[in-house]
Design a protein around this nucleic acid. Structure first.
Lengths: 220, 220
DNA sequence: TTGACATAGTGTAGAAAACACACTAAGTTG
DNA sequence: CAACTTAGTGTGTTTTCTACACTATGTCAA
């Protein structure tokens, strides 16, 4: 028995999060084509014939934004039949984390075609991309509480204050400094570098690094 | 610009869990066709042109097993390019929960074509369905700890001992009776029916029911 | 040099939650 | 009515969570 003909167009999209100006922002690209030509949307594109889903997410992200080497995981698959006005398109949504330290002008070219939009003040987005961003934010916030995913938004070396600020911004609430540090220490997954971060007219901060840079573990 | 031609065959699969003989079991169906003809596999099938993903999961489950009205949620999308030996097939995996009280012979017809297999002793499965079952089991166990999903395996009325046993089986470890009951009571999501469950030569057990039968909430 | 400034860094006590643990209650059955 | 079987209950201990405020150490400017 032959296989039925292909039934759907398959795409991936990625919500890239970082912190900018003390806000959680997501990376948007301007759609060059109909439908929604000129409207902001998530980076992404069609899955190649012989390409894994995560591979596609990585590739389209690199092609459209130059970003690579980010922490990335699958989020959810959106397949409402009328989410694309032309034809059926199913998208496997992912989210990725870019440490703000890597933001240094990485995306300053083509400023009309890309932007970082605060997740709590998004412009109109194409398709159902606003729902995707909302779900990704929610997932990220949850995972902060029961995993070590938060470290994936840190650079190679970071201070505890930095880390705390990132958590506060994503969760949308202030955290107690001493309790936060106690909790982080109890994870035993970072170590002192021995160096100090100096900035401004105040006491320097210890720099830490992850013991296992790529690892994201469940806690408790 | 025209949309590119369809790039992938899209399917859904469902892992239906229930408890049988004090084990967590998943529902398997025998594949009628190549590839893997005659091999056990998860119920599922191709997504219709104008059909939602969850709708497809519900439909194929009903068509292949007669089951309906189950709690069901999306699990993960498996899209490895060579997971199907013929052509690219991407499957959106779901899992569903069938209260054991509804097992009464529901699937006793066509016994050669369907079976309940213990998740820790699966037969060889088609495609990557063993990975799907493993991930579903892991997800279910996690969600037991931070949500009220466990009640979706209960019938309309149930005893606390029943509920505890289901938790123990899924988690694979014994739970303390008094602590378990304390925890369940603190959720405030069940109420006494006033009736008693009588079975065997021993004290009857109180019957409870969910205050909001469909609801699954996050806790803590 | 020294004082003002700004952020880094630290401990403790009370509350709440998690955990370990064993006996009595109330039916059925022979 | 005695034996059996599962239902149902409380307390003390440990651990985790929470609230809370001051000292340390650098820079910078006067």
């Amino acid at each position: 028995m032959p296989i039925p003909k292909a039934t759907a167009v398959l795409a991936t999209n990625v919500v890239v999060f970082t912190i900018r100006d003390e806000r959680l922002v997501a990376l948007l690209v301007r759609r060059p084509r109909k439908p929604f030509a000129g409207v902001w949307s998530l980076p992404g594109g069609l899955v190649g014939d012989d390409e894994g889903l995560e591979d596609c997410a990585v590739r389209t992200l690199r092609d459209q934004t130059g970003l690579k080497g980010l922490y990335l995981e699958q989020l959810y698959t959106f397949g409402n039949p009328d989410r694309d006005p032309r034809t059926r398109v199913v998208t496997v949504a992912h989210f990725a984390l870019l440490p703000p330290a890597r933001l240094n002008g990485e995306l300053d070219d083509l400023p009309d075609q890309r932007c970082w939009a605060p997740v709590d003040a998004l412009p109109d987005l194409a398709f159902d991309h606003d729902r995707i961003v909302a779900m990704a934010h929610q997932r990220l916030a949850s995972k902060l509480e029961y995993s070590t995913i938060g470290f994936q938004l840190m650079g190679e070396r970071f201070t505890l204050s930095e880390l705390q600020q990132v958590h506060e911004i994503i969760l949308g609430e202030p955290l107690d400094k001493r309790n936060f540090r106690k909790r982080v220490r109890s994870l035993h997954c970072i170590e002192e570098t021995g160096d100090w971060y100096r900035a401004g007219n105040h006491r320097p901060a210890r720099l830490y690094r992850l013991k296992q840079p790529g690892a994201v573990e469940y806690i408790k």
